[in-house]
Amino acid sequence: MMSCLDYFSHWQKQQPTIEEVEHDLFYDLPPDTDLADKEVFAVMKVGQLVGLIDLLHDYPQEETTILGLMVFHPRVRHQGLGTFCYQQVEKRCREKGQSKLRLGVYQSNGIGQKMWQKQGFIEVSQQDSPQGRLLVMEKELL
């Protein structure tokens, strides 16, 4: 996470500390949710950590999973790893009985928007935040 400053720059003005990243990734949950519905996956390549994926199932409603984070080290991007991992995310969500995936991408992150549109996500709403405009996107899992 600490090597993905370009990702954080879309919504934070300064680099987070390791402690902030650990807390947010493993323990930060919306109100009225259960830690048992949260999954965090490490993406490994040749024995090295190169990515992280964060899922929260049955939120904001049953059978919907929030894809809170999918980030990769810059040196492994644009090699098909993101697409492969996203396919595994869909598979995992179906295994958990989920029918929809939801995520947010900042309007300033044009590359992210294009990537999610390519995966079949559509914009369903927008939210303003102190960090900028957040585009809420969803995909029905067939």
Results as ranks from 00 to 15, higher is better:
residue 120 G to L: 11
residue 53 I to W: 11
residue 109 N to A: 10
residue 37 D to Q: 10
residue 128 D to Y: 06
residue 129 S to A: 07
residue 54 D to P: 03
residue 29 L to C: 08
residue 108 S to V: 13
residue 65 T to H: 05
residue 108 S to Q: 15
residue 71 V to P: 09
residue 23 H to D: 15
residue 26 F to W: 13
residue 5 L to M: 09
residue 59 Y to F: 14
residue 107 Q to E: 15
residue 101 L to A: 07
residue 83 T to D: 14
residue 39 E to Q: 09
residue 102 R to L: 13
residue 63 E to Q: 14
residue 102 R to N: 09
residue 13 K to L: 05
residue 139 K to V: 09
residue 32 D to R: 08
residue 112 G to N: 09
residue 137 M to A: 06
residue 30 P to Y: 14
residue 37 D to W: 13
residue 133 R to E: 14
residue 24 D to F: 01
residue 6 D to H: 07
residue 78 H to S: 12
residue 37 D to R: 12
residue 88 Q to A: 09
residue 4 C to G: 04
residue 6 D to M: 05
residue 8 F to P: 04
residue 86 Y to W: 14
residue 136 V to S: 13
residue 54 D to T: 02
residue 76 V to F: 00
residue 4 C to F: 04
residue 87 Q to R: 08
residue 127 Q to V: 13
residue 36 A to M: 08
residue 84 F to I: 15
residue 79 Q to A: 06
residue 45 K to Q: 13
residue 140 E to V: 14
residue 72 F to H: 00
residue 31 P to M: 15
residue 129 S to M: 08
residue 138 E to R: 03
residue 44 M to Q: 12
residue 59 Y to M: 01
residue 31 P to A: 15
residue 4 C to Y: 01
residue 19 E to I: 13
residue 78 H to F: 10
residue 81 L to M: 09
residue 135 L to W: 10
residue 31 P to C: 12
